[in-house]
Design a protein around this nucleic acid. Structure first.
Lengths: 213, 213
DNA sequence: TTATTGTATTTTGTATACAAAATTCACAAC
DNA sequence: GTTGTGAATTTTGTATACAAAATACAATAA
């Protein structure tokens, strides 16, 4: 019984989830036969999925030695955030200069549910935040940008494991970005977005310092 | 006789060269068995190489239908340049704030051979230009940045096919960028780099317009 | 002619077999 | 105790076989 036209796709998704959740630990060696058996598939489609993950920088392959879940260290976190800063900043700029601003409604709708609310549900807010940032990229309609952003995005998720700055702090920042885009102020949109991401980067850096002590 | 520990690597390089040179045409369907036979390998390592190319956005895979060499249209060119603008701009900024500026010599050495020369060899200059831009990224020592830049870089090469702005115009721009980095002026370094790429983008846009007429 | 259906061929996706390399581990030499 | 050697085992990389899907094409009906 055939369920999928391409098995490697669900395998890819499953593995990614396993990496993101920590079910597959950073640095862990992937023994193909073992994982293949666990997932009930052969090594061929598994290899396809692993290749995709390797190209996303989530898996490291050493020829003739094996494939390993990548480990992200302190520098990697900073480096990834620098990329996000450049890419999201550019995305905000592109949206600011767009004539058709119909996407604004959708951006705003991410955060309007949290306005005038006494205690914000952090889980829901985290989700909204993810949606907002990926929408920012999506609405540029720049395929290559979407592609390479996505690339840094998953790394962030692996490292961050849900860690976010307090909504109290970021809610206003988000609306400031949206407003700059709405008003067509490209420089302001880019700068605010960069600042926003820089702040998140700093949170991670501080967190890292704490855990090292 | 085993020559490589991983056949897919030379296959990958060969295919990439074939795409860059136009030996494999844009939009062309890749019949795995045929290419595998041509290269004297089986479909397994070929598939690995194709997967890598797919993840680099050079090959498009439609499940159960086949893999095709991607076509890049007018919008793609612009979009790719927008990404380069963001990434290289950020790279220049990072280099400007670096304490250790020992890399400057290497950046300068790309273009010093063309100073005070009557007629510049365009081929040599194109090579120097490629070296300069990839060095800019390399010296940031930001692995993820390197990775995603590389991603846009190959697309550029496929589309551009060696087309460059006249050295007369860009030589000075290059040195201006280097000087801004040397002086530690991050904003200036980023802005000049962005301007430089924006100009190259415009050349491609104009070229495209001409060829459409 | 143009559609349409059924069949043959091609091509993809997956599993599996097998050789070569890497790893493990026991045991000897120092 | 450490180091080195060499089988036994594991694991990877490649080729290949085969089923399922897609495609091409011929034969038939309208």
């Amino acid at each position: 019984m055939i369920q999928y036209t391409d098995l490697s796709q669900p395998i890819y998704k499953r593995l990614k989830e396993m990496i993101r959740s920590g079910e597959l630990k950073q640095g862990e060696k992937i023994i193909q036969e073992k994982i293949a058996e666990e997932l009930g598939v052969s090594r061929t489609p598994l290899m396809k999925a692993l290749l995709a993950l390797e190209n996303e920088y989530l898996v490291e392959s050493i020829p003739r030695r094996g494939m390993y879940i990548r480990t992200f260290d302190y520098d990697d976190i900073i480096n990834i955030y620098v990329c996000r800063e450049a890419l999201e900043g550019m995305a905000a700029r592109l949206l600011a200069v767009k004539k058709d601003k119909s996407f604004i409604k959708e951006l705003e709708s991410c955060f309007t549910p949290f306005l005038n609310v006494k205690t914000i549900d952090v889980n829901a807010y985290t989700k909204a935040d993810e949606t907002f940032h990926s929408s920012l990229i999506k609405f540029t309609e720049n395929k290559p940008l979407d592609n390479i952003y996505f690339f840094s995005d998953i790394h962030d998720k692996v490292v961050r494991q849900g860690l976010v700055r307090p909504p109290k702090e970021t809610l206003e920042e988000h609306f400031n970005i949206i407003n700059a885009i709405k008003q067509g102020d490209a420089d302001q949109a880019e700068n605010l977005t960069r600042y926003h991401i820089k702040k998140s980067k700093e949170l991670l850096i501080n967190q890292q310092k704490k855990s090292k002590q």
